[in-house]
């Protein structure tokens, strides 16, 4: 069975009981509440470090979206520039997400051989490679 990424005990207490009646028709109200519940839960549970990770990831998404919209508006003329700029953000996002997964103590079972420090070192290695390729590609 694939492991869960969060312990099951904590969220059960904070989740409102609305999902019991949830169905696709009663959607939007419940969905909004669900989302709100998820957000509150997130604020409480997640450690500081992980929040730092998440904020960096959010920042990357914003930068990626900005670049993409610019591309849609003005065009992708130096295509390699567009690709390298966009891939830099996407790659960095993915690497950071991997770091998040690896440093999450709930996943310790999966990553027995990788300590968080090792994960971070790998992360730096991967990111440096990514930056090198992007700068080389954009010329």
């Amino acid at each position: 069975m694939p492991p869960k990424s969060r312990p099951a005990a904590a969220p059960a207490s904070s989740t409102p009981s609305k999902p019991a009646t949830s169905s696709k028709t009663g959607g939007s109200m419940d969905a909004q509440d669900i989302v709100l519940g998820v957000w509150n839960n997130y604020q409480k549970i997640t450690p500081q470090r992980v929040k730092l990770l998440d904020s960096f990831m959010g920042f990357l998404v914003v930068v990626a979206a900005l670049q993409f919209f610019y591309c849609l508006l003005v065009g992708n003329f130096p295509f390699n520039a567009f690709l390298s700029g966009f891939s830099a953000t996407v790659g960095q996002f993915v690497l950071t997400a991997s770091l998040r997964i690896q440093t999450n103590p709930d996943n310790k079972k999966e990553f027995e051989s990788t300590s968080p420090e090792r994960a971070f070192a790998d992360y730096v290695f991967g990111s440096l490679l990514l930056h090198f390729f992007c700068v080389n590609f954009i010329n």
Binding site: F59, Q67, V74, G85, F86, A88, T89, S127
Partner: peptide
């Protein structure tokens, strides 16, 4: 190439943020 400045900026913003 003036069109590429945005993406150059994107890369360096990413690096700085990183």
């Amino acid at each position: 190439i003036s069109g590429a400045w945005v993406w150059i900026g994107g890369i360096w913003v990413t690096v700085a943020g990183w």
